[in-house]
Design a protein around this nucleic acid. Structure first.
Lengths: 369, 369
DNA sequence: TGTTCATGGAGAAACGTATCTCCGACCAAC
DNA sequence: GTTGGTCGGAGATACGTTTCTCCATGAACA
């Protein structure tokens, strides 16, 4: 009785708003089967003869039936959505380290997610709580989390898997992926020293993210080791103008460096422009390397040696680790597992001195492999 | 009776999985009020004394209560999610016209959405239907839809608002925003002609998107008008190497142009490199303009004049139009309303000849406003 | 003639919220 | 002493799925 009344009521309601999208009930009614059968047929579950399956599918197609993602999410607890945090600067979404890096990384993350049937939701890191809690997430990718990152802690408390790009400082994540920034910087400094550099300068940032911090520390440590006086300028990395000014300042110093490594993407062009202003020839008078994912440095005059952090590989790895965790495929580790990915130094003319130009130096192969 | 049994059953279930997140029922029980009251208190609805409201809020806070986004979406029919299509090339998400454009546009769109409490979901344009239908969208931003775009038609049939960046060809959208590509190209060609160009070449694409098509048509029309023989090379815009080759081809022609406009972002550096190979001085022997959002062209040698499509403004506008439609704020128009946004020509040295270098030309102000 | 078993499928209970309806209580005015 | 209105809040339903449980039916088998 109750059931019958209920059902009848529903039918009436459904009929009243027939202009809306068709639901699973409509499909069931049209196909003359039960809701269960429709669900099973469409999702490839249950035990059904093929003819029933195909008939249901055909009816669903005819009615233009689309399952309600919201209802499915509510029932299954899975939304198929992955959050991707971006740090914001001012009003605009922004990522600290460098923009090309983020773009590439996000691109790879997006396609990795799609390959496994997930979609990415772009969310601001430090901002409106209401937006965050308004979207049903299966997990989150956090880019370069801060120490004790409150957002990460919050997500973790909710039981959501969190994977970070950048080794997290004192906050609980399911897994993380990072470059070996320390080794990368050391490699570059050695490379420059081998090319004849005596006083290597650094263009770095004032922000406290892991990338900036580790890289700067590696530089300072190297300086101590080889007994060189540190020569660096730090500037707020999010401000493009400040970068040009800092590059200028670095080359205007009385103890001008004869080689510079710039931590951020635009540093290459900025340094090149500054060198031009001071009539310094690259690479004869000044060796140049910067960290960038942009390929404009292949066609500058001269082409500039860059360090690539391989953001695609990182984006892909991060997403796959996250989805593994979501789907309970996490292999064996019990603790937050980290992966360190290699970087790649793309050697171009700006960091190599021609043999015939070299003043006094031991002969060496023109470029490392 | 039935209700009591039901309620008891729920309580039992809830208690059994207490380890899961707290639900609205738990808050109601802990605060000694009904579910309705909790909902009303937290959402600022209903008629409740302030003390009840604050008490409920406090209890919810204490329990770490987060409303289930899925349930809310199911109930209200609103997810707070906006789809952002990206065209894909090969495996990677990609956007045809140019990457920096897309990045800036997406950035602006993201922040515009967040400002109004929405989040953006990145979805591939032409790919897996399953992913699309698996996420509850309130509306979609489509970038550069194709003619009779099947995805747009499908979304529209579902009753979802669709706003496109790029004037749609024969598919129904709620609104659209686009640049006046025709006028922009004409403006550039006139600018180059005024700077003394006699034979203006074009570097264009082989793809059929609106941007490429309109721009090329504008060029051809201009050529007809002024009686110039068209000089252009077309290449697949998604292939970065092909761009360099095409730039080289264009400058290697027997009827070499004395000015070139490149439709895509990397064309500037490619053309500059090609000019160097042929020992052409810019701007003395070759005037250069390209369409780009990248500011590396401010620091190249020489700096290159660029056309900016103002992607931020477009991203913001598109999202706001979409959300207006979602929230039923659509102002007055009944039909798909379009907005045409201006472009901006950023004049730099590559398209200006110094007065003393100009051979024979009427004197004119050094740079248009 | 029972007793299994597999097959094909139906019923109904959740999932967690928002909201519509309605109810008691209190107060004032007639 | 009844009516009418406001305040504060409870009950129950619906949103549209998935899935757990269970029931027929018929065939195979002893």
């Amino acid at each position: 009785m109750t059931a019958a009344a209920n059902h009848h009521g529903r039918r009436a309601t459904t009929r009243a708003r027939r202009l809306e999208r068709a639901g699973i009930r409509d499909v069931a009614a049209a196909a003359g089967v039960s809701i269960t059968t429709v669900s099973d047929a469409l999702n490839g579950k249950g035990r059904l003869p093929d003819e029933t399956r195909s008939k249901v599918r055909e009816v669903a197609e005819r009615l233009g039936y689309r399952p309600s993602a919201a209802a499915r999410t509510l029932r299954t607890g899975r939304s198929g959505l992955i959050g991707l945090t971006v740090t914001t600067y001012g009003q605009e979404p922004f990522t600290f380290t460098e923009f090309a890096y983020f773009a590439e990384m996000a691109r790879a993350a997006t396609s990795a997610a799609l390959n496994r049937g997930y979609a990415l939701v772009v969310l601001p890191a430090s901002s409106r709580h209401d937006v965050w809690s308004n979207v049903a997430l299966d997990g989150t990718v956090v880019i370069d989390p801060a120490d004790h990152d409150p957002m990460v802690v919050d997500l973790y408390r909710q039981g959501l898997p969190v994977v970070s790009d950048g080794k997290p400082g004192n906050c609980p994540v399911t897994a993380w992926v990072d470059n070996d920034h320390h080794a990368a910087v050391l490699g570059i400094l050695d490379h420059l020293a081998q090319a004849g550099a005596r006083r290597i300068g650094l263009l770095t940032g004032t922000s406290t993210d892991t990338y900036t911090r580790l890289s700067t520390e590696a530089y300072l440590g190297w300086c101590r080791n080889v007994g060189q006086q540190p020569l660096y300028e730090a500037y707020p990395a999010h401000d493009p103008c400040a970068g040009a000014v800092a590059a200028d300042r670095l080359l205007a110093r009385p103890d001008r460096p004869d080689a510079v490594y710039g931590l951020f993407d635009p540093n290459g062009t900025d340094l090149l422009a500054a060198a031009r202003r001071y009539s310094l020839r690259v690479p004869e008078d000044l060796l140049l390397v910067c960290c960038s994912e942009s390929d404009v440095y292949a066609t500058t005059e001269p082409p500039i040696t860059t360090l690539s952090l391989k953001p695609r590989r990182i984006g892909t790895t991060v997403v796959n680790l996250l989805i593994d965790a979501i789907e309970g495929l996490t292999p064996d580790t019990q603790d937050a597992s980290g992966q360190v990915m290699p970087t790649e130094l793309i050697v171009r003319r700006s960091s190599q001195r021609r043999a015939h130009r070299t003043t006094v130096a031991a002969p060496r192969p023109p470029g490392e492999t």
